[in-house]
């Protein structure tokens, strides 16, 4: 009995919410309403606060983009494996969920300009004196990477002839062997390294070598972007323009600093923004 009442209340509440939101949409003039699909949670990009409300970097960024595109956006939760089929089935109008641009996905959906890309980073022990750009000095040093990742491809392609490459099944094993002293170097995904290795402070036992690396895009990919149905070109163009704007006026950097202590921006080129 109780169950019936509860579910009746829930259904009623949902209907009421639907109606009221429609009413608001009708009241407040020309803004088009669109729905954004997202896979929750993926911290700190998206998570729920104590009240169950969505929050996170991508939520803030998405709302900001919508405001600039003059769109009324709502969020639709969708698990990752069904996120592209959901878009094609019109359960929502765009995906904004850390989706990396890949050729396979490009066959199914249309991507906006990329809005972020996580960098990769060279790490070594603090007391080591290694110049990653001087290939001759690297001869015989060992580097650990996770097998089959983009980092593996990059190291094999760029340093395969000088470095001794050790390929591991998991990034945890790479970190273990860096700490055990078996590895001279590791080339790791920045967020993973940030969690697992102490290398950011002046007195950390490890340090970063050179700059963080996000190029060439042929290996590291273009980054994460919004995805649309192939025919919604006008909608994608609106968001492309909004992405250019948040980068141009520093809003993106402000948001990024709020959630991350490292740089994952992929500044769109003037050429891309001129379109």
């Amino acid at each position: 009995m109780n169950k019936w009442i509860t579910s009746a209340l829930i259904v009623g509440g949902l209907l009421a919410g639907q109606i009221s939101s429609q009413a608001i949409a009708q009241d407040s003039e020309p803004k088009d309403a669109i729905r954004l699909g997202i896979d929750v949670p993926y911290e700190p990009f998206v998570m729920r606060d104590a009240d169950g409300q969505l929050e996170g970097f991508e939520i803030d960024l998405g709302n900001e983009l919508c405001a600039r595109a003059n769109l009324e956006c709502s969020w639709v939760e969708q698990s990752w494996d069904g996120i592209i089929p959901g878009l094609l089935a019109r359960k929502y109008d765009a995906i904004l969920s850390s989706m990396a641009i890949t050729p396979e996905r490009e066959r199914q959906v249309m991507f906006s300009l990329p809005y972020y890309n996580t960098p990769s980073v060279w790490i070594t022990a603090r007391d080591r004196d290694i110049d990653i750009n001087d290939k001759d000095s690297l001869k015989g040093l060992s580097v650990g990477v996770q097998r089959g990742t983009i980092r593996d491809v990059y190291v094999t392609q760029e340093y395969g002839d000088v470095l001794d490459i050790n390929r591991y099944g998991s990034s945890q094993d790479v970190v273990n062997d860096l700490k055990s002293g078996r590895l001279d170097l590791t080339f790791e995904d920045f967020p993973i390294a940030n969690d697992a290795i102490d290398f950011r402070k002046d007195n950390s036992p490890y340090k970063q070598l050179g700059d963080s690396i996000k190029t060439p895009t042929s290996i590291f990919g273009k980054g994460a972007a919004m995805a649309f149905r192939q025919r919604d070109k006008a909608l994608a163009a609106k968001f492309d323009k909004a992405i250019c704007e948040v980068y141009a006026d520093g809003t993106f950097d402000k948001l990024m600093d709020q959630y991350f202590d490292y740089d994952l921006s992929v500044r769109p080129s003037e050429q891309d923004c001129a379109k």
Binding site: R147, G148, V153, R167, G169
Partner: peptide
């Protein structure tokens, strides 16, 4: 191959991943 030795299986893993 789980401890990074490039034995036959390690080679197969490499080709598979690549």
């Amino acid at each position: 191959s789980v401890v990074t030795i490039m034995d036959l299986t390690g080679a197969a893993y490499y080709v598979y991943a690549r």
